[in-house]
Write a protein that binds this DNA or RNA. Structure first.
Length: 510
RNA sequence: GCUCUGGUGGUGUAGUCCGGCCAAUCAUAUCACCCUCUCACGGUGAUGACCAGGGUUCGAAUCCCUGCCGGAGCACCA
């Protein structure tokens, strides 16, 4: 057997023990991805998942987890996912009209395409239909108890007086809700679950309530009777063929509540996975859309793509590839405990994606000026050290250069200007010494990056810690906005804009 | 108070269902060395974990009990 190739061994094994081969192949498969298998995946013809954001602002980094994971699952199982905006609260969690498109942009940036995009606020009539059906099945009742009173009864495991109304009465009262004949707080429609269920969270929850504030979307502005998340989401998951739901641990009880509705209708509940919260390091601000919104409105940040802000728009502007974020998110898996995602992880994935194809350039931060004496007129460092075939840059040196303060040699010491040549410091002048590269290899002369004074480009490097004034080599102006560069010994940066005075780049990571 | 649900190196993850191949996998991180006209990339090595205590067993990260610590829900928010 040892004399055979792996292929032959496997064929041979197939004859002897087909099941063992299947197992081997399953193992091989397992090495290709980090995410665990979807529960009970074989039971479904097509895997269907959904991202159900509340459109209250552009996404922060944590939001990337949902599309990253369900998009990856969809690809792996040859299934699909939809984006469904759960925008059924026009007041407390009022949708931001711009957020719908902003979120879809973010999904695209991550590299995924939803099979469909729907908005709950377009589907209110549908929810009404199912509510009517549920009422007829005696699965829901209208209730005018003040919230606090009901809460007390519920905690005691006691039914309120409205629970036993007949369906005809309930239906009539519900139609009055639909017609907007009530005001917020006056009446709700409750699902009849189990009033003394041992878990108080599951007892007769609210399915519809009145909201006085019109929905910001014109198409939905006339509705006053709005479904609650647990009802709306449950109906939609069934209607859109969702087979697997992933959601946060804060919604752990949702499935249990929705099962009561599913049971009334005779539906099978989808598979469900709960995961914990994601926390990201490296930022001063919390991963919270509402907090970000406040601080941006207050002028503390320039906008949703300010480099100091933990949003996807910010990472995008900084030149981080969506794929890097996806890779990092997929590595987090789907565990129920809270997880910390270090930004260094996203950076490591990004570096892996971009390092090989990114041109190199020089940018000097807070440059110190030195005159140059001797040496060739131009320097020709390669565009990429590992790909000399891609060509080289041309930097006109002029008669002075900038060095970073940390790279300044002591008087009498030498320094190798990268891609240019060896110099010794005499006062404020760097004098060309015409030595070979051996001084670097054998004598340990430091190799530093530099920029010419005369033909330098003023460059503003926007970083998470604020803006840094730099001088860059002239070739930087040739790159179109959106290009990625690696400033040698500084780090990666995305070219953002050029104007008459300066070039702006966003720092990606080291 | 009631009800869920977790706890593997700094971080994430594999292993836990069906105890032994686990003196615990892989990645990232940090440090060192090598490579190098970058502090990038690449290579080598090091660091570093089964929440605690009992029990069952020839054998426990894995099963049982207790404790400790954490997260979540009990909204006319999502």
């Amino acid at each position: 057997m040892n004399g055979l190739s792996a292929e032959e061994q496997r064929e041979r094994l197939a004859e002897l023990d087909p099941e063992a081969v299947a197992e081997l192949e399953a193992d091989d498969e397992g090495d290709d991805h980090d995410l665990p298998d979807l529960p009970n995946a074989d039971a479904y013809d097509e895997i269907r998942m959904r991202a159900a954001p509340n459109p209250n602002g552009p996404w922060h980094i944590g939001h990337a987890r949902m599309p990253a994971v369900i998009g990856t699952y969809a690809e792996r199982y040859d299934g699909s996912f939809i984006v469904r905006f759960d925008d059924t609260d026009p007041e407390t969690k009022r949708p931001d009209i711009d957020a719908y498109d902003a979120i879809l942009d973010d999904v695209e940036y991550l590299g995924f395409e939803p099979a469909d995009v729907i908005r709950a606020s377009d589907r209110v009539e549908t929810y009404y239909e199912y509510a009517r059906d549920l009422i007829e099945l005696e699965g829901a009742y209208t209730c005018t108890c003040p919230g606090e009173e009901f809460s007390e009864l519920k905690n005691a495991g006691e039914a309120c007086p409205h629970r036993d109304k007949n369906p005809e009465t309930v239906l009539a009262e519900f139609e009055a809700m639909v017609d907007g004949e009530h005001e917020a707080g006056d009446i709700v429609l409750r699902v009849r679950t189990d009033i003394d269920h041992k878990n108080p969270a599951l007892r007769d929850f609210v399915a519809f309530r009145m909201v006085d504030t019109p929905h910001p979307r014109e198409e939905a502005a006339d509705y006053r009777c709005w479904p609650m998340l647990d009802f709306q989401s449950g109906i939609d998951d069934q209607l859109t063929g969702v087979t697997h739901i992933i959601r946060g641990i804060d919604l752990q009880d949702s499935a249990k509540k929705q099962r009561f509705v599913y049971d009334y209708f005779g539906w099978a509940y989808p598979e469900v996975i709960h995961w914990g919260h994601v926390q990201v390091d490296a930022y001063d601000v919390a991963l919270s859309t509402s907090t970000l919104k406040e601080k941006i409105a207050a002028g503390e940040y320039d906008g949703w793509d300010d480099p100091r802000v933990p949003t996807l728009k910010s990472l995008r502007r900084r030149g981080v590839r969506g794929e890097a974020i996806v890779n990092a998110m997929v590595e987090l898996g789907t565990s129920t405990s809270d997880v910390d995602l270090p930004m260094s992880n996203i950076y490591a994935h990004n570096r892996e994606l971009v390092d090989d194809e990114t041109d190199r350039a020089f940018a000097v931060r807070e440059g110190v000026r030195f005159d140059i004496a001797g040496g060739p007129d131009t320097a020709h460092p390669p565009l990429h050290p590992e790909h000399p075939d891609r060509g080289e840059r041309t930097i006109p040196v002029g008669d002075a250069v900038f060095l970073e303060p940390e790279d300044v040699p002591e008087p009498g010491e030498r320094v190798w200007l990268k891609g240019y040549g060896p110099f010794g410091r005499e006062g404020d002048t760097l004098v060309y010494t015409d030595e070979s590269i051996a001084v670097v290899r054998e004598r340990g002369v430091p190799v530093v990056h530099w920029a010419p004074v005369e033909e330098s480009v003023s460059l503003r490097l926007r970083t998470m810690d604020g803006d840094v004034a730099c001088f860059a080599e002239p070739g930087v102006r040739e790159y179109d906005p959106d290009a990625l560069l690696q400033f040698e010994r500084v780090g990666f940066a995305r070219v953002d804009a050029h104007d008459d005075r300066e070039t702006t780049c966003y720092f990606t990571h080291s």
